[in-house]
Amino acid sequence: MTTITLPPQCTREAALAVLAQAREQGTADLAIDGIAVESVGQAMLQVLLVVLGGRPLGSPSAALADMVRKVGLGPRLLEGAAQ
């Protein structure tokens, strides 16, 4: 299992980097750790939705979980509801 740890500031640039890594390594055996995240933007939310494909984020930080819930993506990204 490969794990990508998200940076504290999940900006558009960070989203591009995560996407590139996910494309390179494949998503089947990929986990994403959000323990360090302080803020997240739309680009990263979209990347997470595509890369995780219904699997939950690993160890989301409180800030990430709060924002994900506020924008209605809690079931998808925190609980792993299928697309």
């Binding site: 558009r12 998503t27 680009a43 979209q46 595509v50």
Partner: peptide
């Protein structure tokens, strides 16, 4: 949201 292959984060 498209598949990973067609996805454009911009």
């Amino acid at each position: 949201l498209p598949d990973l292959d067609k996805f454009d984060p911009a």
